[in-house]
Amino acid sequence: MALNTDKNSYTIIFSVLMVAVVGSLLAFTAKTLEKNIKANKRTEKQQNILFAMGVTDQDDPNEFVPAEKADELFNQYVGENQYIVMGSTAEKTTKAFEIDVKKENDKIKNDPTYERKMPLFVGEKEGKKYYIVPMRGNGLWDAIWGYISLGSDFKYISGAFFDHKGETPGLGANITEAYFEQDFIGESILDENGNYVGVEVKKGNADPKNERKEDNAVDALAGATITGNGVTAMVKKGIKMYMPYFESIK
């Protein structure tokens, strides 16, 4: 071929064309699949919220409800009982589901006077109410997030779900394991004087069966100190923001 591929001008033209072609190809793919990906994320969020209130797969209590049933079950257990909490007041609206906790966190970082919109989901199962609070924090490598549900006494945790973006598999990533999440169930978030303290992921807690529910602590995961501390901070801060509202409706 008579093409001189060593010329500088050729190299530059080639790279410009390559970027244009690859760029439009990727943009096209992203646009075509956008709808499906969004629907999947929505389903995942519904599964997470249901998990935090103890609605799980029929056969395996450690698994989510099946994806195809998520929509139906979410409407059955939570439905329109969604609130946007601002300070100590709340507005009932299904827009709560669309609120991105990450974006709210960013907004308050950029503008400390911004009044944060906090989504709250209220589920009802077998006559009991579950107040499900979404939260987001930092692990060792990247973001961690979760949902914690409180009973209507606003003292004991009735369910927890955690997930992460890039914690170490086998160590920090184990926060998604059911045995860690189950440790939070029944834990008290108030100390003996009734003051808010949250729940600590504590090393040397030595309570593997989690029999001490009033000690505001669960056992840490081996080899995951920073991730554990991240969970502690996230849970503490996450629930605290809702406390003024919870106090007002107690």
Binding site: M1, L3, T5, Y10, F14, S15, M18, L25, L26
Partner: peptide, 18 residues
């Protein structure tokens, strides 16, 4: 035959990344 040899690694990376 048309990849400029100077930036061939970059081109390879772009292809695989895409």
């Amino acid at each position: 035959n048309i990849i400029p040899s100077k930036i061939r690694i970059i081109v390879q990376l772009v292809v695989v990344a895409a």
